[in-house]
Every structure is written in C-alpha cells, then in structure tokens.
Write a protein that binds this DNA or RNA. Structure first.
Lengths: 209, 209
DNA sequence: GTCTATAGGGGGATAGAC
DNA sequence: GTCTATCCCCCTATAGAC
C-alpha cells in the first residue's frame, strides 16, 4: 500500500492548495497564516520556508487558480457551436451563487491594490472577456447579433452581470436572484439577436446558414 | 464664534458618521473600533457607552446609510420622464467606480451573514429593484419595452450589472470598464425598446462619464 | 524541509475615575 | 457621557533545533 510510487505531495503543495481554498472561502484579508497552516497540516516553519510572507503565498495560490480557470475556459470555448449559443452556454454554467467567484470576491478588498493579487484576478477576467468578445464579434459578423451592439462593451457587461449576480444573491441570501439576473440578460440578448427575417427592416439581409 | 446655538454634534453622532465612512472605505472586517475612535475623535469609553459592540455600531451606521440612499432613490424616481428614460438615467448616474457601492462591497465579507448587516444592505437593493421594476413594467405597458422581457428579471440584471461594474473596474484598475459595462447594457436595452416613435432617440445615449 | 518556541503589535472590549 | 488604563487573544511573522 505505502510502497506505491507516490507523487509525494510536498508541504509546499499542500500549503498552496490550502491557500487556494481559503482565498475562495474567506478572501485574503480574513485569511490568517495560522488558518493556512491548519488547513494544510503544516507549521509556521514550513510556510515561511517556502514563502516569504502571506502576500507571497497568496500570490502563488492565486496564480495557480487563475491558470487553472483560464485553461478551463479554453476548453469551454473550444466547441463549434454557434457563437451566440456559446455565450448563452457560458452564462448558464452551473455556479454556486453563495460561494461567489474566487477572483471577483477579492476585488473589494483593500489588498487588491497589491499588484501581486490584482494581476491574476485581472488575467482571469481578461480571458473571459476575450472569449466572450470573440464570440459576440463572430455573431455580429454572421448576422445573428445586431449591428450597433459593440461586442467589447457587451462582453464587459456580461462579466459584470455575473459578478453582480453573486453580490445580489449574497445580499438577499437568495440564490434564485442569481438566476434571475442571468435570465434577464438572456432575454435581452434574445431580443438583440432576433432574426432580421421578421418584418423589422433594420437592414440586415443575412439569414441563417 | 463658539457662542452660536449649535446643534451640538454628540459623540454618538460623530461615531456613527465615522463608521459610515469607514464601512465605505474599508468594509466591516477591516474596520477596527480603534479606527472608528480615531476617525471620530472619540475614546473607547464613548464608543462602548453608546454601542455594545463593533457589530452594533456598524448596524446603526448601515441602517442610517440605507435610509439616506433609499430616500435619495425616491427623489430620483419621482420625476415624470418616460419610464425607460428613468431607467437609462439611473444607469448613467455619476458613480465613483473605484470607491464601489457602500452596500455591495459588504456582500462578499463573511460578516454579511450577520443579519444586522445583511438587512440594511438587502433593504437598499430591494428599493432599487422595486423602482426599476416599476419603470420597466410601465415601459412594457405603454409599449416602449417589448413583451417577453420580464421586468422583475431585468431589474435584477441591471442592479447586478452595476455591482459587477465595480468589481471589474477595480480588478482592472480601470474606471472606463465601468462605463463600458453600462454602455453595453444600454445598447441592449435600446434594441429591446420598440421604436414606436419616428424620432429614434434610442441608442443615442450621447454622453459617457 | 519541517518542526517548536517566541515576539511585537493590533483587535475587540471592560473597569472605573471624572 | 467621556475619559484613561488595561486585558486577553490572535495576527504575522522570526529564530533556531532537528
């Protein structure tokens, strides 16, 4: 049993892992080095051997988290569904409204002014924005999204929608509000993508291919 | 100079005022009783004479803040502009993107689970939601907003949009993203509003902050 | 690399004089 | 009502043995 060739999880990895969890659960400021140590079954000596400070280990953990989620996004947006459908699917991803976004939740802490923390957070959002903007641009090009709608602006709106959804759900202690926010936006998007095939003569001629 | 009949600002009021500012600046958890005392030129004795705990004074301050802002909302939504214009105007209110919403910023703290804090936060958002939903409902009734768009859902979406706008602006350290999020939503709304009047004022929101 | 022991400072609150 | 003085605990490390 014990003789297996084990990857041998180092204390360093355990510490990083514990920190990732804590950053999501409680954020940066409310997370103490002691909390990390307990969650990782480690002692101060280990923590400060591998990392110079709480900020340093948080940076490492957050960099890892961002890399993970950015990679997952690549997968998500890889398919070849119609671009607007991709956007819809992204909005409808299963999310734990109360848990919040592990990046967005840090945005309101004063510590977000540490570039070490802000950089990975911004990197994650930038990846989302890029994917969404690309889909929306494509949708506009192929005629499923109306002109006059700026894909870049819209992408930011949708990211904000999700982040705000967490805020509202937590404030009302009601997960349903998260879904409501998403549904409202989906309905708007549907209106904005309603084909030009109807009597509305807003200039478009493109039909579904 | 000093002989004027002064309203005599009590230490209690100073403490509340200082707490309101701090809750906005740094949030609940990062605000220490000592911070409050310094900001209010008061001493522990005063604080704990008037309030039983940090939580108690935060509750009092937050209740006051919510009452203020709910009253301001009443004024805002009092005019008799077309309902959809009211909504647009609300979205275009001047906001300090980096400062964030003094209610929404608390939503991600673990302490939001204290009902004392959550109640005023939810009360504020509920007021916004009610006003927006009423406008949107009216707009749908008078034909300026398409059927098929649920006013309740949409109201939640718009609140989320704003709250998320703060998150994104802070994450990217870029106020322009707040405006971008708003613009994106305004464009969507414009598409969803039926241009029954010949004079097409939709989409021409003209000013950016 | 990981441990135990310890340190300086601030957090949240109380006691009691005035 | 407001003040000064003080308390205990936890936060963020640091030192040094193993």
């Amino acid at each position: 049993m014990a003789g297996r060739i084990m990857p041998k999880v180092s204390k360093r990895d355990q510490l990083i892992e514990g920190t990732k969890e804590l950053l999501w659960e409680v954020g940066y400021e409310a997370m103490s080095p002691r909390d990390i140590q307990e969650k990782s079954a480690a002692r101060p000596g280990s923590l400060y051997h591998h990392f110079s400070s709480k900020l340093a280990i948080a940076e490492a953990a957050l960099d890892e988290a961002a890399a993970e989620d950015i990679a997952r996004l690549e997968q998500l947006f890889l398919g070849n569904a119609p671009p607007l459908e991709m956007v819809r699917n992204y909005l409808l991803l299963k999310r734990e409204a109360f848990r919040g976004c592990r990046f967005g939740r840090l945005a309101h802490e004063a510590s977000i002014e540490h570039e070490e923390l802000r950089r990975p957070v911004a990197a994650y959002f930038d990846a989302v924005r890029t994917h969404l903007a690309r889909c929306l641009k494509q949708a506009r090009a192929d005629g499923t999204l109306r002109m006059g709608l700026d894909p870049e602006n819209l992408a930011v709106s949708l990211i904000a929608l999700i982040q705000g959804g967490y805020v509202i759900a937590r404030s009302f202690k009601d997960e349903a509000l998260f879904s409501q926010a998403i549904e409202g936006a989906l309905a708007l998007l549907a209106e904005a993508s309603r084909s030009k095939r109807a009597s509305n003569s807003s200039g478009g001629s493109a039909q579904r291919s």
